[in-house]
Design a protein around this nucleic acid. Structure first.
Lengths: 336, 336
DNA sequence: CTGTTAGCGCATTCAA
DNA sequence: TTGAATGCGCTAACAG
């Protein structure tokens, strides 16, 4: 490994001078700078970050802790986060909590131990509070994306569940649906709670009586929908829904898979709408009606807020960025 | 920040003893261990990795450097890599080269500077040789996945382009196609070269005269296919292909998009097959006929080989793992 | 079984 | 404008 000492010796200067050249700090004569830089190139010197972060107490590494890297939503978040981080001279450590609190907890410890400067996190659920407290105790700034956590006041980049839900449901209602089921994510995740609240409110405003039998909570990522779908289908005709509002993309896909297995046609027998595009390439399967969230921006803006905190030039009060979804109406919800 | 010194003082032992407890190394009396562990919990001590890697010259961080995080193929690779890394007590730094040599080069410098113990990498192309040489110079072990690089002898986990191509083409031929176009990835990527070689060989074996006009090279990830598709379509009927072999999932999707825009029906007017599933959730759109590669295993085994190298218990000779694809025949290639 | 010494590579502080 | 001393938090090597 090449160190500043090697450079220093060869250049006949002190290690400190080399450090100054590398970091562009202090005053250096043009001559020595050139001499040192030449040798740096010659020897292929690359600074040792472990040493640097030990002295500086900062690593220029940020962490993105998400819950499901296979979900195109988070994949785009990662893209945005990475781009912004790179642009600002930070590296990004990407981790995956798998919607598991324990995994999240393990990762948080890892991250602290790795000395990351900040964490951009989609919390696994409300119980993530414990992990966030750990971050606070260790003075590591964090920004939450996509989901909030009760009792934690911090910078946020979230979507607008209310308006997304509203537009989706109003579209269904306009299509003539009044029995609309909600297959929701877990109740301990803020987005699910918000979507459920909006669901009931909007039905009420539309003069539709909501039926608790039509709502359920399952995982955002595992394939738990089959039983739920079966239940819905087996309801007596008078109660059976004609439309399903799936709280996210994976639930929607698995729901449609289940419906197909049960020989229920979409959209003829059942309309389906959801949040977030399941497709890595947009518009390839122009089928699902959905509320597309600007995932890339969740990541991009999230990192931006985070870096402001890390570098200490953010405003005193916490910032809440709310990004509106775009409703895309396609076949899965259209009466033929 | 809590250090071993804080623990040591409170426990009335030496820092070294604390270190031993933390690392489970050496002999420690049950009594002192308990005492120390209690205080560690009490003070919420988390080891400082920068310091540790500075002394140990290893960070327990591996890097996964891929070319496109939005591609479900790599997303699954990341999953596999992460799972194996975690299981072995390593963390994973995930980076994205965007198929760009310069980005890759920047990342390689970053990684070295971060002191990663090893790199699992899908090289952007043959010119990645330069970046790999940098790794070698810095004595950082690496394993290549998905793609090889001319002139670099190293551990590999790759797919079987020949057999995948063969099965795909034989299927098309069995369907009665003889004018089969190849829309390939860039010629400086090994998978593209291998698929092209296989393409010509298999056509020859089948007694089909290949026509260079029917083959082209575009990017694996950008949407470059439109012009190519247009050209193919505008060929005189006697030369116009009836089937397209797309070298990867994104090319296939973009190709189909273009075909739709040009009012060419798939599969009625044009069959399409490709490598790799474009869907994050398998079997949701049971449409594309494809050679599905075991992406998860690319990552999982890649990390396994890498850790063997990192820890110095790999075999002397380089290991080449070749994972066969699974052919999934669906509608996009079926004559009605 | 436990403690002391020394040094990993770098940048801050102070001195020249 | 440059350099020397010092310490960041940790562990290997040695001593007791």
């Amino acid at each position: 490994m090449v160190t500043i000492y090697d450079i220093a010796k060869k250049a006949n200067v002190s290690p400190m001078t080399v450090s100054r050249v590398v970091n562009n700090s202090g005053k250096i004569s043009e001559k020595t700078r050139e001499k040192v830089e030449k040798i740096i190139k010659e020897l292929n010197y690359i600074p040792n970050n472990a040493a640097r972060s030990l002295t500086l107490k900062q690593s220029k590494i940020l962490s993105l802790l998400i819950t499901d890297i296979t979900n195109p939503f988070y994949t785009k978040v990662a893209r945005g986060a990475e781009d912004k981080a790179k642009q600002m001279g930070y590296r990004l450590l990407l981790s995956n909590s798998d919607e598991s609190l324990e995994k999240e907890s393990e990762y948080v410890d890892m991250l602290i131990s790795s000395g990351v400067d900040g964490v951009l996190m989609a919390p696994a659920g409300d119980e993530s509070k414990k992990n966030l407290k750990t971050l606070i105790k260790n003075k590591i700034p964090f920004v939450l994306i996509d989901r909030q956590v009760n009792g934690i006041d911090c910078d946020l980049v979230i979507g607008d569940s209310y308006h997304g839900t509203r537009q989706l449901l109003e579209h269904l209602i306009k299509q003539g649906h009044s029995k609309i089921a909600l297959i929701n994510g877990p109740a301990n995740i803020s987005t699910a709670r918000e979507r459920e609240k909006a669901y009931f409110e909007i039905l009420r405003l539309a003069g539709i009586e909501a039926n608790k039998q039509l709502t359920s909570n399952i995982s955002y990522r595992q394939n738990d929908s089959h039983k739920v779908v079966k239940n819905l289908i087996s309801l007596p005709e008078s109660k059976r829904p004609t439309a399903i509002f799936a709280a996210n993309n994976f639930i929607a896909i698995n729901t449609i898979k289940s419906l197909r297995q049960l020989n229920v046609r979409v959209p003829e027998d059942m309309a389906v709408v959801c949040f977030d595009d399941p497709d890595p390439i947009p518009d390839f399967n122009p089928f699902l009606t959905l509320a597309a969230q600007p995932a890339y921006n969740f990541g991009y803006m999230g990192i931006q807020l985070l870096i402001e905190r890390v570098e200490g030039n953010g405003p005193a009060e916490k910032q809440r960025v709310i990004l509106p979804p775009e409703i895309i109406i396609r076949n899965s919800s259209m009466r033929k």
